[in-house]
């Protein structure tokens, strides 16, 4: 059996060169890469470019790289990358080539089949593995998507703010609706932190989170069990005082909360300083109170506090709304 026939079975991507670097024989799979142009008779380096370990332009240069891993690229298109190793043979050489990591594209580009690879070649196993892993990944990805969906659904149904353990906006809406339906009297305080953004910006989100947790604790301590404390935005809170509409009591609670929140909060060797502005609306001030109107009234009162220089508490009165409309709306506390 002639050498070329042996080699075609063992290394179907080999090429045999004569002493001048011309192709004397090309393995059947290698020939498939340039099916339209016979490789035999052409100069090897004109068909395939050597990139590493160093470029070569002559057979002499090529022959100096015996036994080392070489990186090639097909000239023309597609510019398939190839790996190879060269052994001198007589006055010429044999170079065995393979696709390396680009094998998946190559199999697609040249429509190769199992028969194009040596029986011992692991290419088909590698293709199997790539597909099997993609299928398994896809199954995992679908599971993750479903779990993510379930998590979002659960969060949407939840009544708790995960960072502070307070009620969330959904819970607040629920409580307000229930109390209005029952015709109960209550006070609604809208509290907005001052200088919180500065803490977040200068000391980082971990410090911000720490401050929010501390704020939550203060508010829970300053309210009764039957009251509701909800975090309704990044640094906004709503407190609902059940059957508590005594203005002087509410004023006192608001003052105490503000003064406690103004105490410096240590965090990892730094000190966070914040304050709070509060606006309060009372359910009995309105003839037909709705959740929306009460929240809105408290909001107007809150911005009166902000305008008054922060760290203040204000009860809602209709003239505040007129005052707010008369002046340009304050910048929505971007700096606070």
């Amino acid at each position: 059996m002639p050498l070329d026939d042996f080699m075609d079975v063992l290394c179907p991507m080999h090429v045999r060169l004569d002493s001048t670097g011309r192709i004397v024989h090309a393995g059947p799979t290698l020939q498939k890469l340039r099916a339209d142009e016979p490789l035999v008779g052409r100069r090897f380096l004109e068909v395939i470019e050597l990139l590493r370990p160093r470029r070569a332009s002559s057979m002499g240069e090529l022959l100096t790289m015996k036994g080392v891993k070489m990186h090639f690229q097909m000239r023309g298109t597609p510019r398939t990358a190839l790996k190879g190793v060269m052994v001198p043979q007589g006055r010429g050489a044999i170079i065995n080539l393979s696709f390396g990591i680009g094998v998946i594209e190559a199999v697609r580009d040249y429509v190769l089949t199992s028969a194009d690879f040596a029986a011992t070649d692991l290419t088909v196993e590698m293709l199997y593995l790539v597909e099997a892993k993609s299928a398994a990944m896809e199954a995992s990805r679908k599971l993750n998507l479903r779990l993510q969906g379930a998590k979002i659904a659960a969060e949407e149904q939840a009544f708790t703010d995960t960072l502070t353990g307070l009620k969330n906006r959904r819970a607040m809406d629920h409580v307000l609706t229930r109390m209005l339906e029952a015709g109960q009297e209550f006070a609604l305080m809208h509290l907005d932190l001052d200088f919180f953004k500065a803490v977040n910006d200068t000391l980082g989100h971990a410090a911000g989170d720490h401050v929010l947790q501390r704020v939550a604790r203060v508010m829970v301590e300053e309210t009764r069990d039957e009251d509701t404390v909800a975090r309704v935005g990044g640094d906004e809170f709503v407190l609902i005082f059940h059957k508590q509409t005594d203005r002087s009591k509410l004023e006192e609670i608001a003052r105490r909360i503000i003064s406690r929140l103004e105490k410096p909060i240590p965090f990892e060797g730094q000190v966070c300083r914040i304050s709070a502005s509060i606006g309060t609306s009372l359910s009995l001030d309105d003839e037909r109170p709705t959740a929306e109107s009460l929240v809105n009234d408290a909001d107007v009162a809150l911005y009166a506090s902000k305008r008054a220089g922060r760290a203040c508490h204000t009860f809602y009165t209709p003239d505040l709304r007129d005052a707010q409309q008369a002046t340009t709306p304050p910048e929505r506390a971007a700096a606070c």
């Binding site: 199999v107 697609r108 580009d109 429509v111 190769l112 089949t113 597909e131």
Partner: peptide, 8 residues
């Protein structure tokens, strides 16, 4: 048909 390079 079975095309090695195709992907389901």
């Amino acid at each position: 048909e079975f095309d090695l390079g195709a992907r389901a």
